[in-house]
């Protein structure tokens, strides 16, 4: 073998090795997430418009697609299948509560508070098919969660963790940081909100602990631990990623749905009811 050929071979092997190493480094870089955004006080910056982009509002458990309830809407409003968001895919209902859940699910069009544009409660507001905005300042200011659906909102009390004077639809939220995770303790709920359109429900003893953990600048891992000794035999957990609406033009639009529910709720009391 000529020196020239040897040189070419060695050079080729070295070049290949360099390429491999470079590729490996590049892959390594893509595997480790880009650093998350931070506020001036060092806390993760969760500001932005977020959406779950899953089928949990239909059913938080794994479910298949099925015919929708309005025949006239055909494929446009039938139910998409979806992977569940519940850990282990099992909700630990007490035996007597299962019947209530089944009855809710069977009659969801008349019973689901979403249909009437009622405030959706927590955690459901998070994974409804509408975006929400997190408005976060530096400490000790409170954090606002503003949801598009029904103009719902809730204050996460950061500086003055207080007790709620009464039960509410969106609950009373007290927040704190656990490392890079925003932990929100939510209680003082009324018993009239649901978890989904499948009829999964709770009582006024509901206690939710949410964890918002940024994974990348554009993804938050959301986790909610549900506790309600009146309905469930043990605490259970749901989790899902929340995705940032990255387009510059993103903004919450008004969805003041009261006016979309009025005919349904009060039409029968009109002087000339619509047919």
């Amino acid at each position: 073998m000529s020196q020239w050929l040897k040189g070419l071979l060695v050079g080729g092997v070295v070049a290949a090795l360099v390429t491999l190493v470079a590729a490996g480094e590049w892959q390594g870089a893509s595997r480790s997430s880009p650093p998350i955004a931070r506020m001036a006080d060092g806390k993760p910056n969760l500001n932005g418009i977020w959406a779950a982009n899953n089928a949990a509002n239909w059913d938080i458990q794994t479910h298949k697609a099925r015919q929708g309830p309005v025949i006239a809407l055909g494929a446009a409003f039938s139910v998409p299948g979806g992977m569940g968001v519940v850990e282990g895919n099992e909700i630990p209902y007490k035996p007597e509560a299962v019947a209530q859940r089944d009855a809710n699910g069977k009659d969801w069009m008349t019973k689901d508070p979403e249909v009437k544009c009622y405030l959706p409660g927590v955690p459901r507001a998070t994974y409804m098919p509408y975006p929400f905005q997190i408005v976060q300042s530096t400490e000790p200011n409170d954090i606002l969660l503003s949801y598009e659906f029904a103009s719902a909102s809730r204050i996460i009390h950061m500086s003055t963790n207080q007790e709620s004077p009464t039960d509410t639809w969106m609950g009373w939220s007290n927040g704190r940081w656990d490392g890079d995770t925003l932990v929100v303790d939510v209680k003082n709920f009324v018993d009239q909100t649901w978890f989904d359109r499948a009829g999964n429900y709770h009582s006024d003893a509901l206690h939710v602990v949410e964890r918002y953990t940024p994974l990348t600048p554009d993804v938050i891992q959301y986790e909610a631990t549900i506790e309600d000794p009146n309905v469930f035999t043990r605490p259970w957990k749901m989790s899902m990623p929340l995705y940032r609406r990255v387009e510059k033009s993103a903004q919450l639009m008004e969805y003041k749905c009261v006016e979309f529910a009025e005919e349904l709720m009060y039409g029968h009391l009109s002087k000339q009811p619509k047919q």
């Binding site: 500001n47 405030l119 905005q133 408005v135 954090i143």
Partner: peptide
């Protein structure tokens, strides 16, 4: 409430 790029005025009536 304020965040970089936003001011948000939360009104009690009607949320």
């Amino acid at each position: 409430f304020q965040s970089p790029g936003y001011v948000v005025i939360l009104q009690e009536l009607i949320h």
